[in-house]
Structure formats: structure tokens, C-alpha cells
Design a protein around this nucleic acid. Structure first.
Length: 291
DNA sequence: CGGGACTCCTGCCAGC
DNA sequence: TGCTGGCAGGAGTCCC
């Protein structure tokens, strides 16, 4: 369940190890994750230098020399471990169900191993295999089918109340579902949508097209604020990382409503946090103050 | 064509 | 105690 802030935290943790490094060895231990690895995956990447590690929505993109981009998605359980001199030096990036042992590259869920010219091993583990890795020409990355459908970045200047209103026009789906649609805004997941709607005091059940200007002007800053604080928390986790368990991710943060069914409305103490199911996903909200 | 249901996958945990 | 079924969900696909 990494959402935008967790992916950004992973990017910041991996960038020092990947940017400027050359991949000396690339090993995919199985034919696929959520989608098959490209047939030339290993061959195309081996020997190539990575210039930049970028993030687009929940995707990581390694921009390589020679017009090649490596597109990566963590799915729900994807994580990276960085191993230097046989020791795990940097966080494994993301753990969401308790604490798992750091990947050493030999575990049953260690699916991809990169080795750089600095002698660093970067191991991608993903026990549910909802993640993916694929390749694209770098120059036409935005036209890649996975990228072309994505809406604007919620933390960017293009994400404004007016932009959101235009995207929601005519959409009769609940606002909760609309915000999970990566075409509307790219990078939100179940948890931060619940949190942002709570902060903006908007009911997750409200039809998207009825949001209106005033609510949109609360919702957009709420989304940006929730994400910014989560990125900040991830950053401090990275800085503080000192060889503990390497766990990064949601469960270092605390949420106001997500997972808090039955608890009192934390900010306004006006009601109780309820859990409902929308589009097969749990939604947590306070029916008293979210309208 | 919009929108909801379904699907992939595996670890975990409540409940019997 | 040990098994089982349900649940978690990102995002593509399918169907009404």
C-alpha cells in the first residue's frame, strides 16, 4: 500500500545509491511480477548507467543513459533493500505488515537484484507481487501506456481547486472513489484519501460532481497537506535510520481516521469514526462532521 | 461510456 | 492447538 509519500521516501533513500551508478549485474528471479518482465530486461539494463531516479505518481522511474527508462511500481508489498559490503546500509523502504527481515537477496520473495559498480546490491522484494518493473524509451516515457493515463501530481502547482472541479464534473461516483482514480489525480491511495476527506470535512459518500467550489478549496489543500506531512515523516525516518529494522511507511505515521473504527472523531470530538465499504475498499470517516 | 465488481497474490489473524 | 476463511488493496480488465 505505498502511496505517493512512501514512494517518494523510497526514491530519496535509493537515489544516492543509484544516481550515477552503473548496473553491473541485473537478476530477475522469476518471469513476472504483476506483468511479465520485458524479454530484454536483464540485457538492456546490464552495463548501463543510471542518471536520475524520479517519481511519477506511485511509480519510480530510473532514467538511464542511452534513452532507456526503468519503470518500477511497488504494488502493495514491494520494498527495496540496499546492501553494501554484505551489510544492509539503507532502509528496505517499505514494510507494512509488521516487521519483516531485511532482504538479503536470497529470500523467497526477493525477485530482482541489481548490483552497481560501487559494489552495492539493491534487492527488490515483493511477496504479493502486485508490483511491476518494465522498460520504456526515456524520451517517450510520458506516452508509455502506464504513464499516459495518469492525472496531475497532487503536490504540484497544476493541482488546483479549479482543476479538480473540472476533473470531477459529471462524475456520479462517490468522491472517495474518484480520488482513488489515478486519472483524476495521481498518487493517492486508500489511506490518504480517507485522511484528506476527514481534514476537509467532506463525506466520502458525496457524489463527486456535487463537490462545488468551497469544498474543493478545502479538499485540495487538505490533500497537499496530508501528503506533505507524510513525506516529511518519511524523510525523518530516512534521516534517523540507524540500522534498526528499516521499516518505512505508513505505520510510522499515525492516522486520524484510517483504521480507527469506533474511536471518537479526533479533531472535533463530534461523533465516532465509522467504517464503510466503497468499491470493495474500506473507508473510515466521521459522519457527523464530514458532509 | 461510466462505474462497480472482479482479479491477481500471500501474510496475518480472528474464530471455530 | 491447528486449520480455515476472510481481509488487506493498486490498478487493469470485464461487464452491465
Amino acid at each position: 500500500m505505498p502511496e505517493l509519500p512512501e514512494v517518494e521516501t523510497v526514491r530519496r533513500g535509493l537515489a544516492p545509491h543509484l544516481e550515477g551508478a552503473r548496473l553491473m549485474r541485473v537478476d530477475a528471479r522469476r518471469p513476472d511480477l504483476r506483468i511479465p518482465f520485458p524479454p530484454d530486461f536483464r540485457q538492456a539494463l546490464t552495463g548501463r548507467r543510471i542518471e536520475r531516479l524520479e517519481r511519477r505518481a506511485k511509480y519510480l522511474v530510473a532514467r538511464c543513459e542511452g534513452d532507456l527508462a526503468l519503470i518500477m511500481h511497488l504494488g502493495m508489498s514491494g520494498r527495496f533493500s540496499v546492501i553494501q559490503n554484505g551489510q544492509i546500509e539503507a532502509p528496505g523502504a517499505f514494510v507494512h505488515e509488521g516487521t519483516m527481515a531485511q532482504a538479503d537477496g536470497n529470500g523467497p520473495h526477493d525477485h530482482v537484484v541489481f548490483e552497481t559498480d560501487a559494489g552495492t546490491r539493491i534487492v527488490y522484494s515483493d511477496h504479493r507481487r502486485f508490483g511491476l518493473m518494465t522498460l520504456s524509451p526515456s524520451e517517450t516515457l510520458d506516452a508509455h501506456p502506464l504513464m499516459a493515463v495518469l492525472g496531475v501530481e497532487p503536490i504540484g502547482d497544476d493541482f488546483t481547486p479549479d482543476h479538480l472541479l473540472a476533473k470531477l464534473e459529471g462524475r456520479h461516483t462517490p468522491i472517495k472513489s474518484a480520488l482513488l482514480d489515478q486519472k483524476v489525480v495521481a498518487g493517492l491511495g486508500n489511506i490518504y484519501v480517507c485522511e484528506a476527506l476527514y481534514e476537509a470535512r467532506i463525506s466520502p459518500r458525496r457524489s463527486a460532481y456535487t463537490i462545488g467550489k468551497a469544498r474543493a478549496e478545502r479538499l485540495v489543500p487538505a490533500i497537499k497537506g496530508v501528503l506533505a506531512r507524510a513525506i516529511e515523516a518519511g524523510g525523518s525516518t530516512l534521516r534517523d535510520y540507524a540500522g534498526a529494522d528499516g521499516a518505512l511507511g505508513y505505520f510510522q505515521h499515525s492516522f486520524k481516521v484510517y483504521g480507527r473504527e469506533g474511536e471518537p472523531c479526533p479533531d472535533r470530538d463530534c461523533g465516532t469514526v465509522h467504517r464503510i465499504v466503497q468499491a470493495n475498499r474500506s473507508t473510515f470517516f466521521c459522519p457527523k462532521c464530514q458532509r
